[in-house]
Amino acid sequence: MDKLYVLCVDDQPEVLNALENDLSDFENYLLIEVCDSGNEVLELMEQIDTEGDYTAIVIADQVMPGMTGVEVLTRIENDPRFSAVRKILLTGLATHQDTIQAINSAGLDHYIQKPWTREILNKTISKCLTEFVLDKGIEYEDLLPVLDQPVLYEALRKKG
């Protein structure tokens, strides 16, 4: 089976650790990786792509030194190889400007506010994952327990 990755990027290790812990429900189905800068996550995506695996979801914090979350996500959005990657912005303090940019140029799929709850995070991941899997036509059977049921149902129904 192809490996699916969820990448988290934030400069604060405590946030990354919290994300890692909260995403542990997905560990049997996905590979979770954390990065502490935008450059690192882009490099890692490159590496994953080389190995023929998939980056399914990128969760980026907005406020980071160097590249901001929106900048990272915009880079991903503009790379045709990663067009299906689901992009989530994590933020506690976003200006109007950030938000507009995130939607217009970074093709944001979801916006999670800090502090997040595990439930909302899991729901979001599961929905984004399902969309990615359906988009890419990856076998969904093994991932069933972590997929978003309504999204999957609708796609399967459409196949007749």
Partner: peptide
């Protein structure tokens, strides 16, 4: 059967 199940479950 799969599409039917998906529709009914939704």
């Amino acid at each position: 059967n799969t599409a039917t199940t998906a529709m009914m479950l939704s």
